[in-house]
Write a protein that binds this DNA or RNA. Structure first.
Lengths: 145, 145
DNA sequence: TTGGTTTAAGACCTTCAAGTCTCAAAAAAC
DNA sequence: GTTTTTTGAGACTTGAAGGTCTTAAACCAA
């Protein structure tokens, strides 16, 4: 069951790593993140470009350049990242793939699925990068394969 | 957010249609289902072949042939169909795509995601084709695009 | 037994997310 | 200035899911 695209997954892992290991000081190079987390450098670059254009990250070119969070980690919600990388239709899907499925023209599993989607959206809304980072650094939870 | 493959989605829609419109008597041809639900005939055939081999459907060739449920619709759970078409790893995935993520080596969102997956599994476990069919025929819920 | 109707099986094609590659642009160090 | 290091941008390739096509096999009916 694949819910998030690779782009979202890589972004969340990489930014959690930044928060957990880099203390939010200065720029972190994409090359280092790519090596540390075993994620394709060019692919990661493309993902970060989207997040930079969306204002979630700031980037800097040249020696000692890289990316950093545009705001403190406790202000950046997981859902912001998901919104950018998955697009606005992410929480607007029907489990049976029926176009136009909704409150007034539902499929047979609409009610259940609407609740399940809302629970996921809420989780993404309530979770910040700071929390992910804290979990990883304090409790030594996994972030690498 | 795509959770189920097209195969599962088409199977659920087609079998719900059978239960709702065909009264569970005799064989229903794949051609009719394909036309009624606007699903590729050959693709639907391949999906039903898997369900037939798994013992969920029975098929019959020749004139007036087709497929039918191997058991009464109230005995066939949605999860049986999902298990066949999605494979055994469907409910065993990590939201962050980390291999080996589990109770003793969790990713930062493991706890939440384990509960969400369990809720979905339970829903699929409790829902039968009979219920889907009833919803469609009684409440005129949508099953076609 | 011939021909029409249907599923079975597998080869083949298409599409798109995922991943790679190349060159340009910005910044720093020399 | 020139070189090195880094991100930016876009073309290109790959792999897997989705979809199509062809032939075989089973079945019925005239």
């Amino acid at each position: 069951m694949k819910v998030l695209s690779k782009g979202s997954v890589y972004a969340l892992r990489a930014l959690t790593y930044v928060v957990a290991h880099k203390g939010d000081i200065g720029y972190v190079s994409i090359g280092e993140l790519s090596r540390s987390l075993d994620i394709s450098f060019h692919f990661l670059t493309k993902i970060f470009q989207q997040l930079t254009q969306a204002g979630i990250l700031e980037s800097y070119r040249g020696p000692n350049g890289g990316i950093k969070l545009a705001r403190p980690p406790h202000e950046i919600k997981v859902i912001e990242i998901v919104d950018v990388l998955e697009g606005p239709e992410f929480f607007n899907t029907c489990l049976l793939g029926l176009p136009g499925c909704g409150e007034f023209d539902p499929c047979p599993v609409h009610d259940f699925w609407a609740k399940a989607k809302e629970a996921l959206r809420r989780e993404f809304e309530l979770t910040t990068l700071a929390e992910l980072g804290t979990k990883v650094s304090d409790e030594r939870l996994r972030i690498k394969p």
